[in-house]
């Protein structure tokens, strides 16, 4: 056994530091533009999808299940044949599938915040909304994927839109634009609610009435007066109608404009609320 004097020899047992010159940056590049920062966050969202493709399972499964289920469950009863029903239903299931995917924006934001990831982003000299707008850009990829699945499956089942590729393109663009606006609502909820579970629960409470109490599945003329008033006031009904008409090649500029205006109004309210919550989050 040896003597072990330890007092006043603090450096005696330290190994020689590794060559650390490499960790020092030569110089700092100029800070990124707002758009460049948004693109980095979008790229980050896509990287996450690449590493965890399972997170797309809902985005993939829900549209397929909905389209098949509603077409064959209701088609005969509501429109006399599944083929005829599909022509009006498909744009509706497209809306439903994509809008349901918007809640993940809020859930992911909440999860990232709980993990402290945003602490680093918030100490970087970047445009403040960049993390959120970048995440929304990444979400656009999900919405487009869900749209492609619904439209592809619809075409395979016999959906024949008269508006052609352009009409379908306009319809999908309307749905994605509306979904991006709705995503801001979930961004805000993702920041003000405490847990991802709370976001999920509230999202279903909001999304189910919003998508079901609409003209997606049935003709509003068959509804009792009070419910019809609700359905007519529901912005999702207007979105579904505009998407249907766009795909049929009969949409008017007013219809399209009204949907875009609703989307802009939603963003005008919820983007500032979201940024306020983001800046205040501790």
């Amino acid at each position: 056994m040896t003597l072990t004097p330890t007092a006043d020899t603090p450096n005696a047992t330290q190994p020689a530091p590794r060559p650390l010159a490499t960790i020092l940056a030569a110089q700092r590049p100029p800070r990124p533009t707002a758009w460049a920062a948004c693109r980095v966050f979008a790229w980050r969202a896509l990287l996450k999808i690449r590493h965890v493709p399972e997170q797309l399972s809902d985005v993939i499964a829900v549209p397929i299940i909905f389209t098949l289920l509603f077409t064959y469950l209701f088609g005969g009863a509501l429109a006399g044949s599944t083929h005829r029903y599909l022509q009006t239903l498909l744009p509706g299931t497209l809306v439903m599938a994509v809008l349901l995917a918007t809640m993940y924006t809020g859930i992911n934001l909440n999860t990232d915040h709980a993990a402290g990831v945003y602490d680093r982003f918030r100490t970087l000299p970047i445009w403040r909304p960049a993390p959120i707008i970048g995440a929304l850009l990444g979400d656009t990829a999900r919405y487009l994927l869900a749209s492609a699945l619904v439209v592809g499956l619809g075409l395979a089942l016999g959906f024949r839109p008269h508006g052609g590729a352009v009409g379908v393109g306009i319809g999908v663009a309307l749905v994605v634009a509306f979904a991006l606006a709705l995503s801001w609502v979930f961004c805000w909820l993702g920041l003000v609610l405490r847990t991802p579970n709370a976001v999920t629960n509230l999202a279903f409470l909001v999304l189910f009435p919003l998508t079901m109490a609409s003209n997606t599945f049935v003709d509003p003329h068959t509804l009792p007066g009070w419910l019809r008033a609700v359905v007519d006031a529901n912005p999702v009904s207007h979105l579904v109608a505009a998407t249907r008409d766009a795909m049929a090649g009969t949409a008017s500029g007013t219809q399209v404009g009204a949907v875009l205006l609703t989307a802009l109004a939603t963003i005008a309210v919820f983007a500032p609320l979201t940024m306020h919550a983001y800046n205040r989050k501790s």
Binding site: R28, P29, P32, A37, V40, R44, R120, L124, P125
Partner: peptide, 13 residues
Amino acid sequence: ENLTVAARLLGYR
């Protein structure tokens, strides 16, 4: 990827 994201957010190409 974590470090590349950080570097790009600081303005690196």
